[in-house]
Amino acid sequence: MIYPKISSLSKRLRNPNVYFLFACVGIFCSTLAYAQGDALNETSVISARAEHSLIMDISKTETKLIAVGERGHIVIQQSGQKKWSQVQVPVRVTLTSTFFIDDQNGWAVGHDGVVLSTTDGGQQWQKLLDGDTVNKMMIGYAEQLVENILNEIAVANEEEIDELNERLENFQYFVDDSYAFGDEGASRPFLDVWFNNKNEGFIVGAYGLILRTTDAGKSWTPWTEKLNNMDGFHLNAINQIGDDLYIAAEAGTLFHSTDKGQTWNSLESPYEGSFFGIVGHQDQTLIAFGLRGNAFISHNKGNQWLKIETGVDSSLYGGHKLNAEHFVLVGASGVILHINNQGEVIKSETSKFKLPLSSVVFNDATNGKDSTLVISGLAGIQSISQENKG
């Protein structure tokens, strides 16, 4: 059955003893945050300490870094400058991820089903979607799936009928849960966003949410049936590696697409714990990472995996490819792991405040001096100098 596990899933994820770090610091979504007041319709508050608050994700373009975080905070740092400047946003919910297709066009997603877009490099943002609209969309989608199956059953032969009845039962659970989420209100967060160009993209989130757009986010199509995710596991991250797309999800779930998300296949997982991200290089090297220091490397697009001996038991939440031979992972307790393309930890360090980290990007030197890792998390944004080698 598709969604009998949703109720138990909800209870499990709202139990503070599960994913204890999330319950404490709000990284990702295991303790789902509900909007306080009218946070979906109130603008973010400009704060002198926005860059020092919880920052969930950082994107890099040719001329700037753009970071998003709690209370709708979005801050921007222009290339060659140290100062971060906050811009106003039409919501004040926590923003979890951002993605820019070029220097001007970008998107951000977050709690309560929020999707924002910008066409001027992040100076101005528009709300495209929120959880109330998502709930209505998913109810209509679930009901349409049931109607489609009933039409198939009406003309099915005896060999087909058992399988179709099983699918019908699954989709009826889907309808029930879609209505239940609607009764809860705008509660389900989006966790990541990826675009192929200015128009085509995906957003992924809690309880198996995945939506596709072909018009820059003006309209969205549920893509749930395209994934083999009958238990509604959280879709934590989506990333393009080479020409392919990958989704890292809850309960050891990994998905792979070779056609920019039109179709998806499940990858055989190397463990049963949650994956929070996946990074890699176009030569087929992948690194998937998640709970309690677990990380795995593949040299054949996820067909086989080897465990990386990370030497830590802190959960890993963010990752970045520095170059073809060097990857960086960050996570709880401020851990920062440098890993080569053979899956060996070549350097392990801890951030200044030893607080959870959620994202990392490499900021190339523009003045011939040392470059920096820019990391974000519970203590805001920090920069760590990296020695240039060649």
Rank of each mutant, 00 (worst) to 15 (best):
V155M: 02
D57E: 14
G343K: 07
H299A: 08
S7E: 13
G280T: 12
H52D: 15
L329E: 05
S47A: 07
K260H: 03
I308K: 09
E147Y: 11
V68W: 10
K369Q: 14
S333E: 15
H111E: 02
I210F: 01
H299S: 09
C24D: 08
A67P: 07
I297K: 12
S7P: 08
A288N: 13
G122M: 10
V146I: 09
T366A: 07
K260T: 03
N294D: 14
G208W: 05
G290F: 00
V75A: 12
V328M: 03
F171L: 00
K307G: 03
I6T: 15
Q123C: 01
V75F: 11
F28A: 09
Y246K: 03
W223C: 10
W223I: 07
S79W: 00
V361D: 02
N236E: 02
H73A: 08
L291N: 00
W220G: 10
K347D: 15
D130W: 06
L164K: 10
G377F: 07
K136Y: 13
A48V: 13
E200G: 13
N41T: 03
V360F: 02
I55E: 06
E250Q: 08
A48R: 14
K301E: 13
K218W: 12
T43Q: 01
T118D: 10
I375H: 05
E147C: 06
T285H: 01
Q77C: 12
Q81M: 07
M138V: 02
G110A: 07
N367C: 08
L337C: 09
F99V: 10
A39M: 06
Q144M: 11
E268S: 11
V93N: 03
I74A: 06
G334Q: 12
L306R: 08
A237P: 11
L235Y: 08
N239I: 03
E143Q: 12
D244W: 02
N148K: 12
A142F: 09
D244Q: 02
M137H: 13
G26P: 05
S358Q: 12
A186C: 09
P4H: 15
M230Q: 05
L306E: 13
R167K: 04
N151K: 15
V134I: 15
D364C: 07
